[in-house]
């Protein structure tokens, strides 16, 4: 099933490029088109491309990570960066910026960090859904395997 030479060669090449593109998208997000959601989708595309080319088992090994934990951590991380403004007496998620831009990265503030959290959540959830759907025949080879709710995406 997974035997296209062209796809395999391209997929191998594309993994680092897509991951870099994802980070690029993430960092330019607060002023230009891009952002955590788009970046996260690009990053999960990198893994999904491996999955299409080599199969889900290889994709798990290419980027070994607990994607669900990444998603949960992303939610926590994004939420935490709304808290400083709350402690400072301003409404939740009010943006706070460093006064000077950092060379090479740009301006750093809570929205950027919030976006990192969104990025992690999207990477985790999207990749987990895709991998689970692809792994499903491997996990439950019989026609009517034991059912569970693993396919459920978490909001």
């Amino acid at each position: 099933m997974y035997d296209s030479v062209i796809l395999r060669s391209v997929a191998r090449l594309m993994l680092p490029i897509l991951l870099m593109l994802a980070v690029f998208m993430l960092l330019r997000g607060h002023n230009l088109p891009g952002g955590g959601f788009i970046g996260g989708l690009v990053a999960s595309c990198a893994v999904i491309l491996q999955m299409v080319a080599f199969g889900p088992t290889f994709a798990r090994r290419a980027l070994p990570a607990n994607y669900l934990a990444i998603a949960a951590f992303g939610v926590l991380f994004a939420g935490v960066w709304g808290l400083p403004s709350l402690i400072g007496g301003q409404p939740f998620l009010t943006s706070l910026w460093l006064p000077q831009p950092i060379p090479g990265v740009g301006k750093i503030g809570t929205p950027v960090l919030f976006d990192v959290g969104v990025f992690l959540t999207v990477v985790g959830v999207t990749t987990q859904i895709a991998l689970l759907l692809a792994e499903e025949p491997l996990l439950f080879p019989t026609e009517r395997g034991p059912a569970d709710g693993e396919g459920a995406p978490r909001a």
């Binding site: 859904i129 759907l133 059912a147 396919g151 459920a152 995406p153």
Partner: peptide
């Protein structure tokens, strides 16, 4: 994504 998984099940 959820509905597809559900329909599959």
């Amino acid at each position: 994504a959820f509905v597809l998984a559900l329909a599959y099940r």
